[in-house]
Computed example of a mutant assay.
Amino acid sequence: MGAAQTRAVRLQESEGRGPGRGARTARFIAGRIVGLMATLFAASLVVFFSRFVVPGDPARFLLRGRSPSPEAIAEVTRQYGLDKSPVEQYLSWIGGVLRGDFGRSLQYRDDVSNVLLQRLPVTLELVAMAAILITVLGLAAGIFASLRRGRFADRAILITSTALGAVPSFVIAILLIAVFSVQLGWFPSFGSGDEGLDRFVHLVLPALALGLAFVALVARVTRSSMNEQFVREHVEVATSRGLTKSSVVLRHVLRNAISPILLVSGVLVAGLLVSSAIVEQTFGLAGIGSLLVQSVDRLDFPVVQAIVLVVVVAFVTVNTVVDLIQPLIDPRIAAGTETR
């Protein structure tokens, strides 16, 4: 009886159940959180010290366009803390970041936090619309192609997704403007619009331009993951037992295929903040993507550092959240027994 109980406990643990499950889950979550903090710390170091790679004297750069006197250089050096060591400057900067103080913009002569808060809503709304588009259309196309695998619809979706994935977002943006703005006049082609419905109308084409290429990737991953599950033994057993096709797809195919789909979708959605810069420039949107391009062009270091740090934090946080959600879908991940 003791040996049988031992085998039963081991079987439960291998399936993500049993008395050791809570400890493994806690270690899994703790490991992801520690990884998140370490990544953010390393990113903050790279973001801050990259400023020292730019050639030239920062004080003279801040006084560009003039013939600065030694007194003016000394005053700027003191005002921006450039007389301190790099380590002291980093500690002062990261301490301000933790308090929500990213410094002062050189081009806007205002706090970086205020500049970002004015631009952030447009980018967040654009990313949210594109994320919904990616999730809904990508999953729908991938599921439909998998259910029609080997048929014309499957091949058509596969070819279309391959073509869309190869087209840059700015090319899609130009085509959308030419068709839906210039020819049909359905949507505006420039500006962010006012709050509410007007903002939504202005963001339709940018969201499509930003999300269509990612829709293709999600569709291909969904199709591939579901096709892999369809040939698994448990699906064949469920089908032979007389379960309906919808029940087999929902309970045995899609549920087991959702883990890689979720992982890829999380990475793509997090990357929308980075990709939004080109689309915002094309459509003249007042978001942080276009602000980043302008700030790099004008060498506004505090704004560039703040935007890059915000993007990195968002990217790493979204991926960590996806990692933490996956064990809820498939406990084998936390148990370390997932098989491919």
Results as ranks from 00 to 15, higher is better:
Met1Phe: 10
Phe301Glu: 02
Arg78Val: 04
Gly20Ala: 15
Phe190Val: 12
Gln89Lys: 03
Met37Ser: 09
Leu291Gln: 12
Ile172His: 09
Ala128Thr: 13
Leu217Ala: 10
Ser295Thr: 07
Phe187Pro: 06
Leu106Ala: 06
Thr25Met: 15
Glu88Tyr: 00
Leu45Ile: 13
Val316Arg: 03
Ala156Ile: 12
Pro70Glu: 13
Leu309Lys: 05
Ile33Lys: 06
Arg17Ile: 01
Ala23Val: 14
Leu273Glu: 11
Leu309Pro: 05
Val221Ile: 14
Leu133Arg: 07
Ser265Tyr: 13
Phe49Asn: 05
Asn114Gln: 12
Ala30Val: 12
Ser67Arg: 11
Ile258Ala: 15
Leu309Val: 05
Glu71Trp: 02
Ser105Glu: 09
Ala42Trp: 04
Asn227Val: 12
Leu36Cys: 04
Arg7Val: 13
Tyr80Glu: 01
Phe180Gly: 13
Ala3Arg: 15
Gly95Gln: 09
Ala238Arg: 02
Asp154Glu: 01
Gly35Phe: 10
Gly16Leu: 03
Pro121Tyr: 10
Val54Ala: 13
Gly150Lys: 01
Arg60Asn: 13
Arg223Tyr: 01
Val204Ser: 08
Thr317Asn: 05
Pro168Thr: 10
Phe180Glu: 11
Val311Thr: 14
Gly211Ala: 08
Ala130Gln: 10
Thr135Trp: 05
Gln281Ala: 13
Ser265Gln: 15
Val97Gln: 04
Ser225Thr: 08
Ala30Trp: 01
Arg151His: 13
Gly271Asp: 08
Phe49Gln: 05
Val204Ile: 15
Arg66Ser: 15
Gly96Arg: 09
Ala141Pro: 01
Gly196Tyr: 02
